[in-house]
């Protein structure tokens, strides 16, 4: 493949993971924090940025670990544990660095970092990367795109939920119920992108 062709291929993976294969709306990953941290746009943006950052880097790190540690020793089944350790260690490391060098950023982003270790979207992105046999560049494009897609979904949801505080919702539907219905409508809207792009 020529250089230009390769770039286009990466851009397709990036856009497909943001829109047609949105990790939250089409793959249901990262639902827990999506349902519980989507009440305000401001916090949703903070968590979203943290996810984009962590996901892009952990997919790259996990790819290196899988390629150079697990595969040569035929320890592929060990990837669940290794990936989790890498994600936890990376998040811890980033937290320390930010706290030391940028207290302002720590105030906005830092509180979300511990939440991210248990966000299944992060581990899910790495597992998809293995299943789809991506190379490093494809993996990074996929990680970045999935992070952006997740952020897009949670920020949109937070915007809608801020408006909902004045709406009259049946008692049994309040909280998670109505959030799920909105998520369903958003997923429906995102299906509209199908056919525009395919990442595989």
């Amino acid at each position: 493949m020529t250089f230009g062709g390769h770039m286009i291929h990466l851009v397709v993976i990036l856009f497909a993971s943001v829109f047609t294969e949105n990790i939250l709306l089409a793959r249901f990953l990262g639902m827990c924090s999506f349902l519980s941290v989507s009440r305000q746009v401001k916090t949703a943006v903070g968590l979203g940025f943290a996810v984009v950052f962590v996901m892009t880097f952990t997919v790259a790190l996990d790819w290196l670990a899988f390629q150079y540690i697990l595969q040569p020793f035929h320890l592929e089944f060990f990837r669940f544990i290794l990936f989790i350790i890498i994600i936890a260690a990376f998040v811890q490391f980033v937290e320390m660095v930010i706290e030391r060098y940028s207290p302002a950023l720590y105030q906005t982003l830092g509180i979300f970092l511990p939440l991210i270790t248990v966000n299944c979207a992060i581990l899910g992105a790495s597992l998809f990367m293995v299943i789809r046999d991506y190379n490093l560049a494809e993996g990074i494009a996929f990680g970045l795109g999935s992070g952006i897609g997740w952020m897009l979904a949670i920020v949109a949801m937070a915007g809608i939920r801020e408006k909902l505080t004045t709406a009259r919702i049946p008692a049994g539907l309040q909280g998670p119920g109505i959030t799920l219905i909105i998520a369903g409508l958003m997923a429906l809207a995102f299906i509209g992108f199908t056919g525009v792009l395919s990442g595989r």
Binding site: A171, L173, G177, L180, I181, A183, G184, A187, I191
Partner: peptide, 25 residues
């Protein structure tokens, strides 16, 4: 067909949660 696509999962779960919560309330 929408039921086997992702939105179907959201809608179905939302309705089940709605029913169970109402019963509970």
């Amino acid at each position: 067909i929408i039921m086997v696509m992702p939105p179907g999962a959201f809608f179905t779960l939302a309705i089940i949660v709605w029913i169970l919560r109402s019963v509970k309330l």
